[in-house]
Design a protein around this nucleic acid. Structure first.
Lengths: 250, 250
DNA sequence: GTACTTAGAGTCACGATGACACGAAGGAGG
DNA sequence: CCTCCTTCGTGTCATCGTGACTCTAAGTAC
């Protein structure tokens, strides 16, 4: 029962997969409405590795765990240091610890995933070694980071369907069309505006601000904000199926 | 951007929350059918700590990560060494790394959760320092292990609703009543046998073995086995709501 | 045989949701 | 000012999933 096991001398790293919607074409304070919403895709920032192993390759932002900080604190810190963005949503994703995932020494990586608003990305660090990529069209990354991003993408798409994290992509107040566009971008399928409205309104997850967005060339849409989670309560759950047509009969 | 951070000298531990259904009253090779199915509850094995910190307290089975093994391998090994059971299902749960969760040194714990069949628990280690507890009625455990078990319980209940993990509690072939009893035990609510049958059969997640279970005092039920996941495909998904009455209107 | 229990099929009502129609409310251009 | 265009927002209809319930089938116990 008690063989002698040589203990692992592992270093603890923390990395984060950061998601944002691709910012609109022209960048202004007011959203540009001429754009094609469904064409915007998911973006993630990557940093170029300046040292071996994997020098020159793109990798997830991250760093080593500090002595006095929590795992989540380390994720928030390294994320801010390398990319300059502050996440509105940060959650642990998975811990990767296969013995051979880094060539020289053993590294166990606790990976987080984060959602940021596209506006924040404009204030991000301008650096040739930091670049935003389309999450569905990545180059070959360092280590096992391609697998990690794929896993994070699946989690994002799944969780969007049964939680309120879509708000983390948006400003405090937003229109239903903007919220729907977030779902369309992440789920990569169009949603019926009328049915989307009905589902979301029935959930009680949103409250009207009483204001409308002006300056549009058409009928001014009402603005909403996320309801207080306590206020939304049990009712705050609604489901936007990821791919309903896959459930059809064969 | 680059403050100097003192790196953490953390030890990497792996622990596992093991779930099984409480075995039937009389222990025989053939299941005893006189029992009250809904009365059976979820059991988890805990080990008594023989050293400080937390000496004397009950804790999750676990140990240190070995140099050559994967995280999942370490979970399976330490689980087998301490409790003697071999899991049919093993999945990473969460990584806990708050700086103060262990008093003396910093410990980061990668926690897994496992499902085992009750039959396997009878071949488990007989040891006064290993005891099975009702998952909903635990004593005060060492470290933050109470929180960890609570988190694992939530994950089990959620995941049971949209996946096929219930099979991991059962033999290779089983009746629909046995499968339903697993759901009833985990979700802690009775399910309508007719509706349960309809939902599960429509999902294509099960196939009939062509045999029936004999020796019951009543009509012999058909035996089923889990469909090949590839065979079940997309159709293999069905939902058993955790608590449908919570979704009712206020 | 009769009584009893569980297995398994069938029926009904209601709510959720996809598809779609249509009026409402603004700006653009004449 | 008037017409046309676009999106916003409301409403309707059909279908499907699901909870509640009924009824027959098939065995054992007495």
């Amino acid at each position: 029962m008690s063989r002698t096991i040589e203990l692992a001398e592992a270093r603890l790293a923390v990395s984060t997969v950061i998601f944002a919607r691709e910012p609109g074409v022209a960048h202004g304070e007011q959203p540009v409405h001429a754009e094609q919403p469904a064409d915007r895709s998911l973006w993630i920032p990557l940093v170029r590795r300046l040292r071996e192993p994997g020098e020159g390759r793109w990798a997830l932002p991250g760093g080593w765990l500090g002595a006095a900080e929590s795992l989540e604190g380390a994720a928030a810190r390294t994320l801010e240091e390398t990319t300059g963005v502050t996440p509105r949503y940060l959650e642990q994703l998975y811990t990767f610890g296969t013995p051979d995932r880094s060539p020289d020494e053993r590294v166990v990586s606790v990976v987080y995933w984060a959602l940021v608003r596209p506006e924040e990305t404009s204030g991000a660090i301008e650096d040739p070694n930091v670049r935003w990529f389309d999450a569905d069209d990545l180059p070959e990354l360092a280590f096992d980071h391609n697998e990690i991003v794929a896993y994070a993408l699946g989690r994002l798409r799944t969780k969007l369907g049964y939680s309120q994290i879509a708000h983390a992509f948006l400003e405090d107040s937003f229109t239903l069309a903007e919220l729907r566009e977030v779902y369309e971008t992440v789920l990569r399928r169009p949603l019926d505006p009328a049915n989307f409205r009905r589902t979301v309104e029935a959930s009680g997850a949103l409250v009207e601000t009483g204001e409308v967005r002006t300056g549009t060339p058409h009928r001014p849409p009402k603005l909403y904000r996320a309801a207080d989670p306590a206020e939304a309560g049990i009712q705050g759950a609604f489901r936007i199926p990821i791919a309903p047509h896959l459930r059809r009969h064969p």
